[in-house]
């Protein structure tokens, strides 16, 4: 999915959210499943095959903290299957802008964990594009969190001084995976409010503009490992943990661009496996 398409989807999402907000007295019919329309718009009408056994999505059955819901996407191809994942798209159907992110992936990136906002009870879809050029879909259902939990920032003052600060961490080997497959895991964290743009400024009563990390790329040496095309459902301080195949490069590099055009960069030496 290209950038303009994602932006269109984001804008449609915003418009729908505002319209729904305006007509709040009319209860939304929960029976209206947005997925068929979403699937067609997001994937250009391409067919979505059943991804069971090939790809998987892991999310808690109930969102504990509405602002920080962990989600893991995996390629789970059977032994002997020579296909590899090329991209994962995460769609949170009932969120104001449903497309949380699209990740294009490089060698060994068969697992991606991140954190998202979940506004209400919703289906969540993961669509993997494999090297055969086809799309494979799996889904799960998440109950919204209860109590006073909200998908907005806990500390509205945030850490403005450190916007764009990056952390990179390398782990010995993937959790819950076969140690023999040679893969490792790493994690990138970026300080950023990732404002959804759906919040009102209490003084001006205008909607706070969308302010999010929209593009994040991570390289191992010169090899692009991961590119995230991010939407507004990604939590504050975007945090991505992923598997990869070490290629012997001496360093990792990351570059992020937010919606105000700020560019954030980082570089870290590759650590030997334990």
């Amino acid at each position: 999915m290209n950038r303009t398409r994602l932006q269109t989807v984001v804008m449609i999402g915003l418009a729908v959210a505002l319209a729904v907000g305006a007509a709040r007295s009319v209860p939304a019919a929960e029976a209206d499943d947005p997925w068929p329309d979403l699937a067609r718009d997001v994937f250009d009408g391409r067919p979505l095959a059943d991804g069971t056994g090939l790809t998987a999505i892991e999310m808690p059955a109930r969102a504990e903290d509405a602002a920080i819901v962990p989600v893991t996407l995996r390629a789970t191809l059977p032994a002997g299957d020579t296909r590899v994942p090329k991209a994962f798209t995460l769609v949170i159907d009932e969120n104001p802008a449903p497309v949380a992110a699209t990740f294009k992936v490089g060698p060994g990136v068969t697992m991606i964990s991140t954190r998202v906002r979940v506004n209400s009870y919703t289906n969540v879809h993961a669509v993997a594009e494999l090297s055969d050029g086809k799309l494979y879909m799996v889904q799960t259902y998440v109950k919204a969190s209860g109590g006073c939990s909200a998908p907005m920032a806990k500390n509205g003052d945030g850490d403005k001084a450190n916007i764009g600060q990056m952390r990179f961490r390398q782990f010995a080997r993937p959790t819950g995976a076969e140690p023999a497959n040679g893969l490792r895991e790493a994690q990138i964290m970026i300080r950023h409010p990732n404002n959804s743009g759906l919040q009102r400024d209490p003084v001006s009563l205008l909607y706070i503009p969308l302010y999010i990390v929209r593009d994040l790329r991570i390289w191992q040496g010169d090899q692009l490992l991961l590119e995230m095309d991010g939407g507004i459902s990604i939590s504050e301080d975007p945090n991505i943990r992923f598997s990869y195949m070490p290629n012997g490069a001496a360093s990792f590099r990351a570059e992020a661009i937010d919606t105000e055009g700020h560019v954030f960069k980082g570089e870290w030496p590759a650590e030997p496996a334990m």
Partner: peptide, 9 residues
């Protein structure tokens, strides 16, 4: 302002 409408829903 940020959370009120969300809580009402």
């Amino acid at each position: 302002a940020q959370r009120g409408p969300y809580y009402l829903d």
